[in-house]
């Protein structure tokens, strides 16, 4: 490694918000976002699964868009707004989805569930009543090894219908 490459900082200061709370941290540049949340902030809702972007268990929201938490580095988050399942549970933004997942038994071990909820919320945010094919396509990047997906699609479809009709779904 040359002197020039060594002059690249290996720790970086970041200032961001996580679930609406301001966070200032000095992070190792190799730290990915999920480990930063889980190990440094104690927010274990986003799960570290494959850690190369395939399984979707780490899916969460950065600046209003769903992303793979394992495919962003914490160092990239200066100025970012991050939301995890803990935060959106507290605000109630996912309450109807979470209730439908429980109702339809759309989880067994639950490992995929936080990521699945973010993928589901993302297609629901587009509004209207998506087809089952469109729902399947939208959650195709989130692996569930328990349910076979039918119940997950059922739950998302149910919530889409309820939201389209303007119904309240209590948690």
């Amino acid at each position: 490694m040359s002197d020039t490459a060594q002059s690249f900082p290996t720790r970086v200061d970041i200032s961001l918000t996580v679930n609406g709370e301001p966070v200032d941290a000095r992070v190792d540049v190799s730290r990915h976002l999920v480990d930063f949340l889980r190990l440094d902030l104690g927010l274990t809702g986003a799960h570290a699964g494959c850690e190369h972007g395939v399984c979707g268990a780490c899916t969460l929201q950065v600046d209003g868009e769903i992303v793979r938490g394992c495919l962003m580095l914490a160092a990239q988050l200066d100025g970012a707004e991050v939301w995890t399942v803990e935060g959106l549970t507290e605000t109630g933004a996912l309450a109807d989805l979470q209730a439908a997942f429980v109702e339809r038994n759309a989880l067994q071990c639950g490992f995929c569930t936080p990521g699945m909820l973010f993928a589901a919320a993302d297609i629901l945010a587009q509004g209207g009543q998506p087809s089952r094919v469109a729902i399947r396509e939208h959650i195709s990047g989130n692996y569930c090894r328990c349910t076979g997906y039918e119940a997950v699609v059922d739950a998302i479809e149910t919530v889409a219908g309820a939201r389209a009709r303007g119904e309240e779904v209590s948690a």
Binding site: S2, T4, A5, F8, H52, G53, M72, L73, Q76
Partner: peptide, 22 residues
């Protein structure tokens, strides 16, 4: 230029960070 081939451009990172993780 200064890195003389020892640094890479990080854009979306959807392949690069996966490769770094692996």
């Amino acid at each position: 230029e200064q890195s003389r081939g020892e640094a890479r451009i990080l854009a979306g990172g959807q392949s690069l960070i996966a490769s770094l993780n692996l």
